[in-house]
């Protein structure tokens, strides 16, 4: 039985993420929302969700044991980062005066510029809230069965820039093109909310559950 740990750092709609994972894996997996180190150690797969401010997300890692358990998992197990759970994997985040992040991917997370005008004359509002397209730039097991330019649900004010194109697996345009998915070794991270992205989001979770590294 596959054990999936949805890491609880106290931010975001963890239940929706857990329900989506449960929905795709049925009875063959056990999904736990947890910050318990032994459960993280036992898990086969790690989902790293997050919503809201990066500061409170990172401050949960001041718990040394949790920090150690998470870093160990990030080195060894398949990990799916979502939204702030993706942003935290870059080097630096400018939110609230700036935060050093985990530095697993090259890039800095900055805020969308207010009031940028799109090609069609519409104003790009911040946060980006709604359905946008994901343009796949490199193939990956997690994209299996997901069409290029599929619509996913996005909800965020900050995005990753100065990324390494070798690590970028999808781009999305919101006034500017930016990295909406990155991956390296055992880690895949995505800016949108697959748990709110209907069939295509569920497909991504299914691919994650079937992903063997």
């Amino acid at each position: 039985m596959t054990q999936v740990a949805v890491i609880d750092l106290g931010t975001g709609n963890l239940r929706s993420v857990a329900k989506a994972v449960e929905h795709v894996c049925g009875k063959s997996s056990r999904v736990r929302i947890t910050r318990d180190c032994s459960q993280i150690d036992q898990a086969d797969k790690i989902v790293l969700p997050g919503q809201g401010a990066i500061g409170s997300w990172l401050s949960a890692l001041s718990d040394a044991d949790l920090n150690t358990a998470l870093h160990k998992a990030l080195k060894t197990k398949p990990v799916l980062g979502i939204c702030v759970g993706m942003q935290a994997l870059f080097e630096y985040n400018q939110e609230d005066g700036g935060h050093e992040c985990l530095g697993l991917f090259k890039g800095t997370v900055i805020r969308f510029e207010n009031g940028r005008i799109a090609e069609d004359g519409s104003v790009m509002k911040v946060p980006q809230m709604g359905w946008n397209q994901v343009k796949i730039s490199q193939s990956h097991p997690l994209w299996q069965g997901i069409a290029d330019n599929s619509w996913f649900y996005f909800l965020h004010s900050y995005y990753a820039c100065e990324t390494n194109s070798a690590e970028v697996f999808a781009q999305t345009e919101y006034g500017i093109p930016y990295a909406s998915a990155v991956a390296k070794d055992n880690i895949f991270a995505i800016q949108c909310h697959p748990e709110k992205s209907h069939h295509v989001g569920l497909k991504l979770f299914e691919n994650f559950i079937n992903w063997n590294i």
Partner: peptide, 8 residues
Amino acid sequence: MPLAKRII
């Protein structure tokens, strides 16, 4: 590309 408009 602007966001898709939504029906709720």
